[in-house]
């Protein structure tokens, strides 16, 4: 038995192996520039916004839903914050006044996001519309609102405290990374250790059976999309802070990457299964490859094409695992159990 136990662990080793392979490859290709403090710092500053958006996509994904409007929600909430901070904070405000306004701005953005999420969740719960379709409408609406209010122009000039959140470090840890770590931990706790989280997995597999067991599916669905939208607001905050501005259209290319990270992280495309740590690991892998490619001078368009190919490849590998490897490993284990007896 012990001899064959490793067989079922092999698929789980894929991501760490990929991370190491990425580090080794880029280290060998660019021994001067890649293995440097600057590289890893830039990774640490870049990953969180994608990471937060991925977390925003993750809960809907596990519940067998989808959220197309994550980026639009993030942008609208960041526009709200930026507008409040740039237009309402007096230039000569003291630290206390500033803090109050900063807090109000963030809470306000969260409220906006929560309202959006509640609407999406309610459409799924009370009307029965698939969230992909609702979020399609919501995305169109939010983009329209955002662009017609700003004419597509960015809102710039954030207060110093916000800029620190985007570019500063605390005890050597980049602030965005700290925010992401906290958010990932919170998501992991919610999914793994609360009844709400357990309900999300159950709903992802069979919402009606969960309902018959007394799960308040309507409330859970609304909760899922509110949580998702709050993550978007957080992503919006980090983006605003890092770019020192807010604009409709930031981060538009992230949708594919969020899905890629989730699927690489081991989540079931049909819902019901998936763990936060897998997604976080996948995000690290993606960031290593992305930074490496950028340093190597690969164009962003090639990277985009490559991400698409990688996602297809990951799906193919998963298919092979499901179709051939997993049954084979199970058989080997069954034989190993039988043999000594």
């Amino acid at each position: 038995m012990r001899k064959t136990a490793f067989l079922t662990i092999i698929p789980a080793l894929g991501l760490p192996a990929l991370a190491l392979a990425g580090l080794a490859t880029f280290g060998a290709l660019m021994p001067e520039s890649f293995p440097s403090k600057r590289t890893f710092e830039s990774m640490a500053f870049q990953m969180p916004e994608l990471g937060l958006l991925t977390l925003a996509m993750f809960l809907p994904f596990v519940s067998a839903g989808f959220n197309l409007s994550i980026i639009a929600t993030a942008n609208v909430s960041s526009l709200f914050m930026a507008w409040l901070w740039t237009s309402r904070i007096p230039a000569d405000a003291g630290a206390a006044t500033q803090a109050v306004w900063l807090f109000l701005g963030f809470v306000g953005a969260c409220a906006v996001a929560a309202a959006i999420g509640a609407g999406i969740g309610a459409m799924a719960a009370y009307v029965g519309v698939h969230p992909t379709l609702t979020t399609l409408g919501v995305m169109t609406l939010l983009k329209g609102i955002g662009i017609s209010l700003t004419r597509g122009a960015p809102i710039t000039g954030m207060p110093p405290a916000v800029q620190f959140l985007g570019n500063g470090t605390f005890l050597g840890v980049p602030m965005p990374l700290a925010v992401f770590a906290a958010a990932a931990l919170a998501t992991a706790l919610v999914l793994g250790k609360t009844s709400f989280g357990k309900y999300i997995y159950m709903i992802g597999s069979n919402i009606n059976a969960a309902y018959y067991s007394g799960v308040a599916t309507h409330q859970v669905l609304i909760g899922i999309y509110v949580f998702s939208s709050l993550m978007c607001a957080l992503a919006g905050l980090v983006m605003t802070a890092r770019f020192n501005s807010a604009r409709m259209g930031y981060g538009e290319s992230y949708l594919l990457l969020t899905v890629l990270a989730i699927i690489m992280g081991g989540a079931d495309p049909n819902g019901g299964f998936g763990k936060v740590w897998g997604v976080v690991l996948a995000l690290f892998v993606l960031q290593i490859i992305s930074t490496g490619l950028t340093l190597y001078g690969v164009s962003q368009h090639i990277s985009l094409a490559m991400w698409g190919l990688v996602l297809i490849l990951v799906l193919a590998v998963k298919y092979c695992n499901r179709r051939w490897y997993a049954p084979w490993a199970l058989r080997r284990q069954a034989e190993a159990v039988k043999a000594p007896a």
Partner: peptide, 12 residues
């Protein structure tokens, strides 16, 4: 999910 990937491949 598949077509998100192929879209990226083609557009990129």
């Amino acid at each position: 999910i598949v077509t998100i990937s192929t879209q990226s491949v083609m557009f990129g």
